[in-house]
């Protein structure tokens, strides 16, 4: 049998593959991953983007075929509920991230100084992360309950309050209660990352600072803190994505109430999309919400790169 007849007998795909053997191999090997990405992320995203240009309601499936361009987005600009949720989410992010950073830094610094039982403390510190956010939400819903909650009970028992404080009913207090739950659950993320930073820190510059005349506070401010900054930015990036999509704790504790006072972007989006079945509008909101996350990530990463550059690392 001559080679040419051999070629002719093979299926067309195999012949094509043989001819472009080297060029196609990488693509072929990558294709399972690419296909999964395509079906799991790219196509749903494209569909969602398309849906944001339609008045799609799940109760009327044919509405998906009506193209209305940017009308959903233009409507959002005048939607006060949306902007209130947007700003509230921004505020929630800012307060949660900063408080978690400060508390996490404090915990990391304290645990770093502990010599006996440090491993045990590190494990205990991570306990809050082991619970589902839904359960944390329930836990704090009961803790802050105005009739049977532990907080009110304790306050009244100690004589610090003479009547029940409506923790989850008053708008501002409810926001505070949700923040408290969020911070309780996730401060250890900061503590762990910053503690890793402290462990990685060379001791020599600290000793040099002592001899150079630094007080403990000055050593911390001028030597330890700059070293920890890249670690803080990494933790902040992770947590900003986490907090920006906050839904579960809020849904359980207040469900956006009272009267929308604790509505965050994703509780609003879920309400519009699923409860009110206005998927088109919800998709438009979701893309705006993603913009916020991208903005935060971009900002924090820029700072991270700058900090790492000055710490002598490579980008």
């Amino acid at each position: 049998m001559s080679p040419s007849t051999d070629q002719e007998n093979l299926p067309a795909v195999t012949r094509l593959f043989r001819r472009h053997h080297s060029a196609l191999t990488p693509l072929l090997l990558l294709s399972p991953a690419l296909l999964i990405l395509l079906f799991v992320i790219a196509l749903p995203m494209a569909f969602s983007l398309y849906a944001s240009f339609t008045p799609y309601r799940m109760t009327r499936p044919d509405s998906i075929e009506t193209f209305i361009g940017l009308r959903n987005y233009i409507r959002l600009i005048g939607n006060d509920d949306f902007w209130a949720a947007f700003l509230r989410t921004l505020l929630f992010l800012a307060i949660a991230l900063n408080l978690e950073l400060i508390l996490g830094l404090g915990i990391a610094l304290l645990i770093d100084r502990v010599t006996l039982g440090q491993r045990l403390l590190r494990t205990i510190m991570m306990f809050p992360m082991m619970f589902s956010p839904i359960l944390v939400g329930f836990q704090f819903k009961f803790i802050f309950n105005d009739n049977i909650g532990v907080v009110n009970n304790a306050l009244q028992f100690l004589g610090l309050a003479d009547q029940a404080i409506p923790w989850l009913v008053d708008g501002t207090l409810a926001m505070g209660a949700i923040l408290f739950a969020e911070i309780w659950m996730s401060t250890s993320v900061f503590a762990i990352v910053l503690l890793a930073g402290l462990f990685a820190m060379p001791r020599d510059p600290l000793e040099a600072a002592k001899v150079d005349g630094c007080t403990p506070w000055q050593s911390f401010r001028h030597v330890t803190l700059p070293f920890l900054l890249p670690f803080a930015y990494i933790a902040m990036t992770i947590r900003s994505l986490d907090v920006a999509r906050a839904y579960d704790i809020v849904a359980i504790m207040t469900d956006g109430g009272p009267a929308g006072r604790t509505e965050l972007l994703w509780t609003l989006i879920a309400r519009v999309g699923f409860d009110n079945a206005r998927m088109g509008e919800a998709n438009a909101m979701a893309f705006m919400a993603s913009l916020l996350s991208i903005l935060f990530t971009w900002f924090l990463f820029t700072r991270l790169l700058a900090a790492r550059r000055t710490m002598g690392g490579v980008e």
Partner: peptide, 19 residues
């Protein structure tokens, strides 16, 4: 404490402030 002794020290690993 070291800061009140008015001494200067040169370390083996230089111990420069990296930032």
């Amino acid at each position: 404490p070291p800061r009140k002794r008015n001494l200067a020290m040169v370390f083996q690993n230089y111990a420069l402030y990296p930032h």
